[in-house]
Simulated scan of single mutants.
Amino acid sequence: MFFSVMQLIGGVILSLGWLPQIIQILKTKSVADLSLKAYLLMLLGISLMEAYAISLAVTGAGLAFLITNTLSLCVVLLVITLILKYRSI
């Protein structure tokens, strides 16, 4: 239980760490210095971990990992969406 709580707290902190980048993109509407390739690689890695997290959650273990990984996946998808939206402006 203790490690599940640690996983949740750590995962939320890691996911919230993307908020300053997202806020900066929305304020400036600029993604000129961001690498789409890097974010796509992160998306691939997180997607693979998501498959693993789902398999853990199905067996009754790893629900905290699934929750925090899904949050990270959503945040990275949001950054990629913003890059695609603002890269031609």
Rank of each mutant, 00 (worst) to 15 (best):
I9H: 07
L63K: 07
L43D: 09
I25W: 03
V58S: 11
Y52T: 09
I25F: 02
K29L: 06
G10N: 12
R87M: 10
S15I: 05
Q24R: 15
E50Y: 10
P20Q: 13
K37Y: 08
V5Q: 03
L40P: 00
L66C: 02
I13K: 11
I46Q: 07
G10V: 06
L8S: 08
L16K: 04
S30T: 03
E50K: 00
T68Q: 09
Q7L: 07
L56W: 01
F2Q: 04
M6F: 11
I9M: 11
V12G: 10
G45C: 09
A51T: 10
D33C: 07
L43V: 03
L41Q: 08
L66P: 03
L16W: 08
S47W: 03
Q24Y: 12
S35F: 05
I46D: 03
I25P: 03
W18T: 01
L16S: 07
M6N: 01
P20M: 11
L26Y: 11
K27N: 10
T70Q: 03
F2M: 07
L48I: 14
L16H: 02
P20S: 12
L84Q: 14
N69S: 05
L26P: 01
G45R: 04
R87Q: 15
I83E: 02
S55T: 14
L34N: 11
Q24D: 13
L56H: 03
L63T: 12
A38Q: 15
I67M: 07
G10R: 02
L63A: 10
G62M: 01
C74E: 00
P20C: 10
I9L: 14
L34V: 08
L34Q: 12
V79Y: 07
A64F: 06
G10Y: 06
M49L: 13
I54E: 01
N69L: 09
L73S: 12
T81W: 14
L34M: 15
G11V: 09
G10W: 02
L8W: 05
L26G: 01
I22A: 04
I25S: 00
F3M: 10
V58I: 15
Y52N: 12
Q21V: 06
I13S: 08
M49S: 07
A38H: 13
L48V: 13
Q24H: 14
